[in-house]
Design a protein around this nucleic acid. Structure first.
Lengths: 190, 190
DNA sequence: CTTGAAAATGAATATTTATTCGCTTATCTT
DNA sequence: AAGATAAGCGAATAAATATTCATTTTCAAG
């Protein structure tokens, strides 16, 4: 291998994300991606078998990255609520800073591109979030409702918030973020 | 005009929705739609100028329909909370019963198909929801947080819930629905 | 240096998909 | 019932897009 490195893959991913956020998954072509990335169309096929593989790889990469970042700085020794807020903030920050990924993931979920295998792997990465909520329930801090439901509620609210923020170009300042956390916490708390 | 009636348009819309829910906005072709609707491809062009117009019309129709249904049975004379729950249930029911529309709307939001005008009109239809929340705030029942934020939080949570329900084929029974309403109410209540 | 293997190119090709149009069929009007 | 008008058709065309491949460039090892 010569220059076929991660850097170029990252560049391709960045371009694809940017375009999907702007024109939607249905609006991008391999030609668009290569142009945006500043490479020849044929070069895309050096890195990926085809469009399907590119999209699946990007989907998996986004998912892994976002989960990994979520638990940064989480210390299970500390009390639940601050730990939870830490993770909540990690997630929100990530989504705000990687808005394009939020849109891309959303668009992907119902596209024929994403294979069952890719979907499956993405789901498995949710395990730590389930564990977190279980802890909260054990400590009687979180409602004794189905955890999947609680997580869905929380993640859905956050996603929509991030999207709305971008559309309306409202900046989510510290005070607004805290208000939103309160909404979320009040919803979940026992 | 002979048979060029609402019934056929509805049939086309239904087919498009079904296909988008299954294969995503990027996965459907005019040919797919016509086949699913049991008509010739050329016939689509009797009803719509082209793919763009079809998608925009469907988007607008979905939006109008869902807003209209939301306020069914709402009586402003009654106390706030039961009225709010009534609307909340209307929305949830609608989304559950029209899952395909939820997916379609979501996919559309970031597609190049939807024009600025269509988007604008969709936004204007939110006015009654804003008014509802204002009432709740005046009566000191709802948090004094930015209404857009409250609505976004609520709608996002509901959408995600509906999607999750379909993916995991969990039936949202009466008790689960009430649990979810409690999450939502606890989040919003002052 | 030279050379060989991998990477990059982008025009050419293959494939898919939107749209058109000449024609047929159905319905309404008088 | 005949004529007029609009809906419906689907093969043919046009346009867009994915993918290939013969050629060129790059770079590291000898």
């Amino acid at each position: 291998m010569k220059l076929k490195d991660d850097k170029k893959v990252a560049q391709i991913f960045q371009s694809a994300l940017k375009l999907v956020a702007k024109k939607g998954l249905s609006g991008i072509t391999m030609g668009d991606i290569s142009r945006e990335a500043g490479i020849a169309t044929g070069t895309l096929y050096v890195y990926f078998k085809g469009k399907d593989e590119l999209i699946n790889a990007l989907f998996a990469a986004c998912r892994e990255n976002s989960v990994q970042v979520s638990f940064k700085g989480y210390n299970p020794q500390l009390p639940f609520k601050p730990g939870f807020k830490n993770i909540w903030l990690n997630i929100l920050r990530y989504k705000l800073q990687h808005f394009e990924e939020v849109i891309f993931m959303e668009q992907c979920y119902h596209s024929p591109f994403i294979t069952a295998g890719t979907r499956e792997k993405a789901q498995q990465l949710s395990a730590p979030f389930y564990a977190l909520m279980e802890r909260g329930q054990k400590e009687q801090l979180i409602k004794q409702t189905d955890i999947g439901l609680l997580l869905t509620f929380m993640m859905g609210a956050m996603n929509e918030l991030v999207k709305q923020t971008h559309y309306s170009s409202i900046t989510l300042n510290r005070s607004r973020i805290n208000s939103t956390f309160d909404l979320c916490w009040d919803a979940l708390k026992a």
